[in-house]
């Protein structure tokens, strides 16, 4: 699998007065064509900001985003618009992500209108095709967003994201606002769409169970940095970073033979306005050593594509 997207040293800082909030503080990873990269972390870890910075919904402070070998952050005007067709996003809150005063059809047709694709009739046919593709009843084309259930609203959001035939789709916690029974439906839909259309996903979640189900590789984020990145299987069975281990211990398991101890983390995630020195996880780390306080560990490959940022590994 070749590389589709590469993110290098991406930073997004928000400045207000004299304070700087380092929401994303230098993350590096690549996403391979056709894969699903899971991005997990607690709320406030910067996952969503990272995704928005990659898509330039928030202009990144520093770093580089390369899409199919082209520098995405240097683009502007028509070139940027053209590039946006390749990269779309599905949002967390399905209702809020749809234009409330437009019907389902109008919402789905909008990207085609913006990019002046096809005639009106062709667009309408395309909308019907997209609605079928995501499992919506085409009779609901004139129905307004608030009349749909959350799951159906998310299907509309997915149809709209697919209208431009993108190669890369960011899914920003697409199921966390949905009912548990609906979550599986949407996840299965996203998975089958990926196979059918050869899509590449960046899948953000705070639920490891969801990520394990859909991702090929997983990156764990904490306080704006990537702590660990590995193949899903590898990460779940050979967890190396103490933070990832704590996360894993919180995932409910059915198998009883594997005795595992729940690792409790004390305290809250520190404020990104005033991040700890050295390794940002050291104040909550159960195995922290003096050097963790002094020096920030770099993300390094410990073999077979398993990357960890920890002094102890």
């Amino acid at each position: 699998m070749g590389e589709l997207l590469r993110v290098e040293g991406l930073k997004k800082h928000f400045t207000k007065g004299r304070q700087t909030l380092k929401a994303v503080d230098g993350i590096t990873f690549d996403i391979r064509r056709g894969e699903c990269l899971g991005l997990v972390g607690e709320s406030g870890s910067g996952k969503s900001t990272a995704a928005r910075a990659i898509l330039r919904l928030h202009e990144p402070t520093a770093g580089k985003v390369t899409f199919e070998g082209k520098d995405f952050l240097k683009m502007d005007g028509p070139q940027l618009r053209e590039m946006r067709r390749q990269m779309q996003i599905v949002f967390q809150d399905p209702f809020s992500s749809l234009v409330p005063h437009w019907s389902a059809g109008a919402n789905i047709i909008e990207p085609l209108r913006v990019h002046k694709i096809g005639t009106q009739q062709e667009r309408e046919e395309e909308v019907l095709r997209l609605m079928e593709l995501v499992g919506l009843n085409t009779k609901a084309i004139g129905t307004f967003p608030h009349e749909f259930s959350g799951g159906q609203q998310q299907r509309i959001g997915i149809a709209r994201a697919l209208a431009l035939k993108p190669k890369f789709l960011v899914c920003d916690e697409p199921v966390s606002a949905l009912d548990v029974s609906i979550q599986a439906q949407i996840l299965n839909l996203l998975q089958s769409l990926q196979e059918e259309l050869g899509l590449t996903y960046l899948f953000i979640a705070h639920n490891l169970g969801v990520v394990e189900h859909i991702s090929h590789r997983v990156a764990v984020m904490y306080l704006g940095q990537i702590m660990e990145l590995a193949e899903t299987e590898e990460l779940f069975h050979h967890t190396l970073h103490p933070y990832s281990q704590a996360l894993m211990s919180a995932v409910p398991r059915i198998d009883v033979d594997q005795k595992r101890e729940r690792i409790h983390l004390s305290g809250e995630i520190p404020s990104p306005l005033n991040p700890p020195s050295g390794c940002s996880f050291h104040p909550r780390c159960p195995v922290a050593r003096p050097e963790c306080k002094a020096e920030r560990p770099v993300l390094r490959d410990v073999g077979s594509g398993h990357w960890v940022a920890c002094h102890l590994v």
């Binding site: 946006r84 067709r85 779309q88 996003i89 809150d93 992500s97 749809l98 234009v99 409330p100 913006v114």
Partner: peptide
Amino acid sequence: REFVEAGHAMGASHWD
């Protein structure tokens, strides 16, 4: 709101 972000993501103009 997220639908405004969706508009930016698909490349709609500021005027739009």
